[in-house]
Design a protein around this nucleic acid. Structure first.
Lengths: 181, 181
DNA sequence: TTTGATAATGAACATGTTGTTTGATATCAT
DNA sequence: ATGATATCAAACAACATGTTCATTATCAAA
């Protein structure tokens, strides 16, 4: 990829992140991104068709990053515990989010997080599908899955609002207690 | 209140609802609301300063409505059950939401629901505070509260996405099972 | 190093939205 | 009937959007 493209793409992402920390996604204008990134108007539009697409690509970047790490680093499969490794997996996920702290906080703070959360929940569904024993049997399956995913997403939001200070292991542990594992 | 004001206010609310069913809040313009409501431009701005304020007032209307009903209809306080009446309360809440079906679906469908959900969660916090025994003691209190509120909110979203077809009692029951009550 | 390709630029453009103002008109409560 | 006030249409400046185009700068590869 052309160095010039990389440079502007990076500039746009960085500018967008700065703005997301200050104000809500909806209230950020393309013009502001252009100014903050210090690029030409037509340059922005040659990279992204819309502001939404920019956010979308930013989200996929983050999750691609997490996915690839998940694949490489196989967690110690200690099936002696009741959660069958779920705790480690969740803690692991939280560590990854912490690595992307600047991006994640930028996107999620304020109300800009819906799109991000959609992607995040998709990821969580695939994750929980690997742990069928976490799904309670006495309620409809999709309702149970919705509960697992939704409440973990809420827990993560809580954690981020708490500046990611509580230890990932602690958060994961408390979460598992609350969903009854 | 002047009949004229009532009339236009109603027209604006109705127009806004119609539009919310078709498209996302962000993509609705004030102009569209004005056209749909068939009112003068300056008239809209004499009622609401911004589009956000309109949404906000719509949410408060709904919750004021629910609150007032909650106060009058005291549920049968059957403390013989483990949930101490929580089940009835939640089912009751779901029935109220169903009464406001058109409004609630309009606001919540798509991604227009964040603001609504914020109000909703505030309401849920006050609700759960009346049921201290529902808060697990072995995790931090705010984390537990966040879990109760967040997961109920998610359950409601699921229920709405399922067209409010499952019976409120069933949903409430399943929810209580999942949070371990 | 030259060169052909491609990315960035800035300016201009038509179009649409926003929020305000103004003076005329219609409707209200009393 | 009348004074108050809500509505209206029209116009306004300010700004955002997305596109076009000619020019300039930078690249990768021969």
């Amino acid at each position: 990829m052309d160095r010039r493209q990389q440079k502007t793409r990076k500039a746009i992402f960085s500018a967008f992140n700065n703005l997301l920390e200050k104000k809500h996604f909806n209230n950020i204008t393309v013009q502001e991104i252009i100014d903050e990134a210090n690029i030409g108007r037509s340059t922005f539009y040659s990279h992204f068709e819309t502001k939404d697409e920019l956010l979308k690509e930013m989200c996929t970047d983050i999750f691609d990053h997490i996915y690839s790490h998940e694949l490489h680093s196989e967690t110690s499969h200690d099936f002696s515990l009741s959660d069958h490794g779920l705790l480690e997996k969740i803690a692991h996920l939280l560590y990854h989010l912490k690595d992307n702290k600047e991006n994640v906080i930028g996107i999620l703070s304020g109300e800009s997080g819906e799109l991000f959360m959609r992607y995040f929940k998709e990821y969580l569904v695939t994750m929980f599908e690997q742990y069928p024993q976490s799904i309670k049997k006495d309620v409809p399956k999709d309702f149970a899955m919705n509960h697992l995913v939704g409440s973990l997403a809420e827990a993560v939001k809580w954690w981020i609002a708490a500046k990611m200070e509580p230890k990932p292991e602690t958060v994961a542990e408390n979460y598992l207690k609350l969903i009854g594992l």
